[in-house]
């Protein structure tokens, strides 16, 4: 494929980490998602924007397997993952966070991270009973990496705290750190900056850029268009469950009248925040 591109002299083709087409999902007659279709380019940060109730979270739920779609298809790279169970999708390297932080409350902050690697020797009863050395070694390696991540995500001090005791901002950080601990190829962040103070928004923005630099593809739901402008390479606009437009922020601005009217509304909503 790349050879063909080279001979044609065209710019290198962008590869899509994720692609979905014709997704629909209705809740008791309410069409939350109604034909959404878009691509998430690999190695970039994509924003999924749209007004409240546009179906953004529902789309993430479908992509990550937390919900099944009524119709439509999802591809992760070349693999079709439509309506796979969540755990299988996670094992393919697609990790997601939740709009309302969902910490594993009874586990410590460190344990929240240790729970993240999908496949662990110590999840098997046979290994636990008969290969304790292997299990202990893997635990120590994972713990070392988890503690490094906690240091980066400013939660090291709280490593032994039960996660339910964290503040709202700390839970937001834990949510991201836990997904990162699972070594994602593609990370779907559902409003990672919602409800946190401005200083922390800056910090989280840096974390997301760092993830991109380390090769992780990111898609994030975000209402604040200032942030989208600043850190996102690609934007998908969702409205009433449909993809209204895709492109860079500047492309979207110069898009058709209908779209700009719509985007204007979104921008106003964003500015109000």
């Amino acid at each position: 494929m790349s050879a063909a591109n080279a001979t044609a002299g065209s710019p290198p083709l962008t590869v899509d980490a994720l692609r979905c087409e014709g997704l629909t999902k209705a809740f008791q007659g309410v069409h939350a998602v109604n034909g959404a279709a878009f691509e998430v380019p690999e190695g970039k940060i994509t924003a999924l924007i749209g007004p409240n109730g546009a179906g953004k979270t529902t789309v993430v739920n479908i992509l990550s397997g937390a919900m099944s779609s009524d119709s439509g298809r999802v591809f992760l790279g070349d693999t079709e993952i439509t309506n796979w169970p969540a755990y299988k999708i996670a094992r393919q390297g697609l990790l997601r966070t939740f709009q309302l932080s969902r910490e594993l409350g009874g586990l410590t902050v460190l344990e929240n991270l240790l729970a993240a690697p999908a496949v662990q020797a110590g999840d098997s009863l046979v290994n636990v009973l008969f290969r304790p050395g292997l299990v202990r070694r893997q635990e120590r390696e994972n713990a070392e990496r988890a503690l490094e991540l906690l240091e980066v995500y400013r939660l090291y001090r709280h490593r032994d705290t039960r996660a339910r005791e964290l503040s709202g901002g700390q839970k937001k950080l834990l949510e991201i750190a836990r997904a990162v601990m699972a070594s994602p190829k593609l990370l779907l962040l559902d409003e990672p900056m919602a409800g946190v103070n401005p200083a922390l928004i800056e910090v989280i923005g840096e974390y997301i850029l760092d993830l991109k630099r380390s090769g992780v593809t990111v898609m994030m739901i975000e209402h604040n268009l200032g942030i989208v402008e600043k850190i996102c390479d690609h934007v998908v606009v969702l409205a009433e469950g449909r993809t209204l437009a895709t492109g860079s922020m500047s492309e979207l601005r110069s898009n058709t009248a209908v779209v700009s009217a719509y985007l204007g509304e979104v921008i106003n909503a964003g500015a109000a925040h």
Partner: peptide, 12 residues
């Protein structure tokens, strides 16, 4: 604590 989260982390 949260079976949805466990699933999202790859636990069967």
């Amino acid at each position: 604590d949260d079976s949805t989260v466990a699933g999202a982390l790859g636990k069967d």
